[in-house]
Write a protein that binds this DNA or RNA. Sequence first.
DNA 1: ATGGCTTGAGTGTCAAGA
Length: 257
Amino acid sequence: MKIATWNVNSLKVRLPHVLDWLAATQADVLCLQETKTEDKGFPYAELQAAGYHAVHNGQKTYNGVAILARSTPDDVLLDIPGFADEQKRVIAATVNGLRIVCAYMPNGQAVGSDKYEYKLRWLAALADHVREELKTWPRLALLGDYNIAPDDRDVHDPVAWKDQILCSEPERAAFRSFLDVGLSDAFRLFEQPEKTYSWWDYRQMGFRLNRGLRIDHILLSAPLAAVCGSCSIDRAPRKLERPSDHAPVIASMEIAG
DNA sequence: ATGGCTTGAGTGTCAAGA
């Protein structure tokens, strides 16, 4: 069974890339972030024709998250229970007995800003929520755009980015809080090439110069980490015309799809 | 140089991303 996550930066613009990628990878589950559309603009029919069910938590212009799955998603939950939030950043569903939590974590804009404070509060609320979800679903994966580079290895220029947004110590501590509830970073379960990133700035030839950050992650609970056979970042879609600024992350597990 | 692209909104130009 293959599960994946991809910040598509507008599903309307990126749908052809998504359909091509699904056909190429045969992923069983794909979590999307930044769909940037309400439900009425969501391409349910095109995805159905490609063999995927879809559940969506959308809004106009910003945010928006979806889970695409070959099997029917059940027990769909939107947002973080008990956390008041206008922004549509979380959708969860059960697929093939796995709890899939898809999250678009706040960017934070700048360390010390109001948005940064919101980011840290939001991350704490999600960690509490995941701790609860694990009691019901021990087989859980938290996939998405974390907007956190967990380690200096995940940053093309750690000196320039030191204590900056996406790399600050409180953000990294928030990332570790997900590990503390029992999840593992699937990417780091395996040997990986150095300088592997999942996001590159559109400007200044960021991708060509590999000036990137690894901020998109798949975290797995212990029973899933035990059966995870690989995890990688697929740079291919970033090379296409009109790409998302993010690349998809995919993990495969020894579970019947 | 508070920029450098890209998107959505909406038709001039700004907010937001990371």
